[in-house]
Nucleic acid binder design. Sequence first.
DNA 1: GTGGTCTAGACCACT
DNA 2: GTGGTCTAGACCACA
Lengths: 142, 142, 142, 142
Amino acid sequence: MHTVIFGRHLASMNRDLPPDIFHIATGSSEPIYRQMIEQLRRLVAGGQVKGGDGMPSVREVATALGVNPMTVSKAYSLLEGEGLLARRRGLGMVVAEREAQFHDHAARLLLLQPNLERIAVEAKQLELEPAAVIAMLADMLK
Amino acid sequence: MHTVIFGRHLASMNRDLPPDIFHIATGSSEPIYRQMIEQLRRLVAGGQVKGGDGMPSVREVATALGVNPMTVSKAYSLLEGEGLLARRRGLGMVVAEREAQFHDHAARLLLLQPNLERIAVEAKQLELEPAAVIAMLADMLK
Amino acid sequence: MHTVIFGRHLASMNRDLPPDIFHIATGSSEPIYRQMIEQLRRLVAGGQVKGGDGMPSVREVATALGVNPMTVSKAYSLLEGEGLLARRRGLGMVVAEREAQFHDHAARLLLLQPNLERIAVEAKQLELEPAAVIAMLADMLK
Amino acid sequence: MHTVIFGRHLASMNRDLPPDIFHIATGSSEPIYRQMIEQLRRLVAGGQVKGGDGMPSVREVATALGVNPMTVSKAYSLLEGEGLLARRRGLGMVVAEREAQFHDHAARLLLLQPNLERIAVEAKQLELEPAAVIAMLADMLK
DNA sequence: GTGGTCTAGACCACT
DNA sequence: GTGGTCTAGACCACA
């Protein structure tokens, strides 16, 4: 799969992530490449994926997901532009060391904040009881 | 705020709604017409807008929002197809009497459910403490 | 080409830039989309293109340059991600207002700095006389 | 800096070059093998490296730079094809005697010319004052 | 009309 | 083997 000829040249590459780290909802209106981007962002922020981890190759992911390699490539490129992935030319992509630091709990919570705010606005427009909304969310989080 | 342009004295004290009942985030990735549709649905379900209320004209809304009249027209047409608005020939759109009934609290909560579920999924991927997420939402709902 | 139906809906759109603002060296090893990106960055920094200016459409540029629309689209998308362009959905791209501010002379000089530093390193490795290098550059800048 | 590993006493006091004569920017978009080629060309033209000097082995350079030996080998092969390096069977590569002559100052300046022209073009697109550009370069060349 | 997404396939550069 | 670039063409959503 990824034959290493000279062991020491990828000192920073920890492990190769499996091609099935991405889970795509093909029915969703959200573009495939965008689903991939947001998933990887969360995986990194949550610590499931660490800096230096070797990403599965574009072709591997493409076959695993049954999508066109260009679609995967687009996601990778955008993640590279974002600083989350780094290219090892001729070798593949790795999770960037600097950017992919653990976010602490507070930082991760901040990532959810804008989405929570949207919920709050909608709940108010619906004139819902705060307690009922909170109870529903609490139930889902179990 | 609620300036009445043409006093329309009909049965059951209904009002003419102002052109600024919609609040559009032009920067959002959500289409304008869809923002309008969902806002009106919530306003009706929450009771801020009642059956028989007169909608502002396409042109009024378009200028108030700085949006293409075609976009407003599209939203109105879809809401009409949905049964939430009704066309009164020569008089413009009014909120439909039959469809636009108060939803009770449980029904309104159901409208929020899918969005809450998205939040729950994201919170789990971020490995957030349920208590922290709930506390944040509770704070926003005050 | 760009028929405006209702004049007031694009208050911030100053003028439509011609499709030939880009000059592509097809022989270059530098990718087409990257040439476009760097050219627009410089045009904005230099003030030749201002915030609010309407970009020519993807299809116009593509035919003017004789390249695939997707190539132009890629450049536009990356420039949007960079904040230099903004999408007006259904209407096309405009130069972003916030990002596309005049750079003053000092700021523009900073854009050239890294490239100049590369030159300096190379000149030293070639053990060139500073005066000769400077004279050559001065001649080219006339 | 110039540590001699194996004293090789041949005609015309030539040295063994250290494995760290190359300085690679792995983050650069310029390919590693190309960086190596251009650096060696400049070092030879500038006289820091002379005909007959012994190049460090592929393996030495690869480990010193943390680069794949194939990459170093590719650079060496291309430099050999160019005539700048020569293969001494069983002894490794040496800098070629015939090709690796001092370039006089004018010839070396010519090597820098294309890069300077790129700078000039960019400076014009940025509408920079020639004097300011020249001053900045002069400062760097000190 | 606008841009966005995805597919299929070819070719290239780098390691 | 790796990713990058470009083309050609189809389909969609938005205004």
